[in-house]
Design a protein around this nucleic acid. Sequence first.
RNA 1: GGCGACGUGCCCGAGUGGACUAAGGGAGCGGUUUGCAAAACCGUGAUUCGCCGGUUCGAAUCCGGCCGUCGCCUCCA
Length: 505
Amino acid sequence: MSLKIYNTLTNEKELFVPIHPGKVGIYLCGPTVYKESHIGHAVGPVIFDAFKRFLCYKGFKVMLIVNITDVDDKIIDQAAAENCNVRELAERITRQYLDAMAQLGVTGIDQMPKASEHIPDIINLIERLINKGSAYVSGGDVYFDVMRFESYGKLSNRKMEDQTGRREVLGQGKRHPNDFALWKSAKPTEPAEVGFDSPWGRGRPGWHIECSAMSMKYLGDTFDIHGGGMDLIFPHHENEIAQSECCTGKNFAKYWMHNGLTRFNTKKVSKSDPEMQRAMEKMTLSHLLNTYGGEMLRFFILSTHYRRPIEFSDTEMESKQKSLNGFYRLFDRLERLTSHSPYDEKQPTLHKPQVEIYPEKHHAFIQDILVMRNEYLDMLDDDFNTAGAIGTLFKYSNSINRFLDQNQAETIQDETVRFLALSAARSLVEDARVLGLFVEKPPKTSDHAPDHLREDLIGLLVRLRADAKKDKNFALADRIRNELSTLGISLVDHPGGTQWTFADR
RNA sequence: GGCGACGUGCCCGAGUGGACUAAGGGAGCGGUUUGCAAAACCGUGAUUCGCCGGUUCGAAUCCGGCCGUCGCCUCCA
């Protein structure tokens, strides 16, 4: 089966045919770095990282670009509020964002261009637009002239007439209310570090132009897929299309993929919504990664189809955590049985030609697994249905556990059964890795163990030893004292009880 | 006001014309197993997919209307 994806431009599921056979260029709109990133900012990168892995699995050579918008009004405002340097703020937030991406296993981004480092490209693009008559200078500002782009509104299905109903406000020096800034002149109150020299005086780029400049720089005038959150369709992506296509005279992106927005209490998670601000603490990436870990968050995001809204809540996170643990337990079970880990790439997966080498009574199980592999990949081919694909991963897990139970794998030493199950689990892991799941074995020790755990455990042993002494089981009592001693903990009995100390104290 | 999305069992969530007698997960209940517990496994749950009409041999799935929730039109992943 071949890949179909839903294209916002046509409002249809389309067969995916890359512009250049075998190669795919993807541009995803990244964050504006002015406040700590929240769960919503992880959705796009996780989905597109997983999508890239899937495309690579299918044999495409993929270039994935995610931008960082580090020149923007909001960064200036926030820096002023925090009384810090604009560049420093942007860099700090960017570092946090990159750290979160690493924890989420987002490894597929080839370039993360920053707006501030592409000012010449942006200026060049604006100049071309002015020369073509699609943009005009007004004071120190430059505006895009939407009347010059016939198909303005083709992405968001908006008609020009509809627009004027709500906001009649004709911006300072704008010819049409929908005209948007390509270049904004510097204001006297703004800090010096946010200004750049341009043919129109000192200033900085408008919001949409950096994405046009950077996407075309890295992927060419026309590229395969442009992605982002659904809230960007208008005006951001609409404006990107307008300015890019006016400039080059060519189609901009062939497919537009928009992910659903994350909600909390049915409302969109947003940095700028004051009501959301109060709940934001538990939705920042740093908090979520600390409490749940990267794989769990990734699993959570991919458990919903990308075009749907994700309903975030702690109870749902906990529910998902439990289901994810089921996979870990299965992997542990196989490791106990075979002394090999399903994470180990040297262990074989299940393949069709292998069927005959196993006894006939196991053929049904093998068939089962092979069917699931196909089902899994079919799901991903159908508009990248990761939710459905993860559903089949659960079926895999159930099937393997059942096979082990039925063959009493723990009590009957049947290496065929055990290693067949291991191979099946290896297939599961390999399939999951197409989405970037189960790439690495999670650490066994809990990072969240409280500091007092060590003391509590010693206390427990001391109490058990007291019970042993009461039962006159002095052999056990002495053993506990001796073994603790070799661990550097001395136990000293007093009439009132037992006192323990670390030997080095 | 304009544009758009969504409404599936207790919760989450796939399915978008026939294999749906609606996947899967979490919770619940009953069972197998177990010294006990946990885990695992088995069984159980929507005669029904917001409501009302229509198209069709056939609809959760297409069309129309209504209700509800949310998003965009100002900054947003």
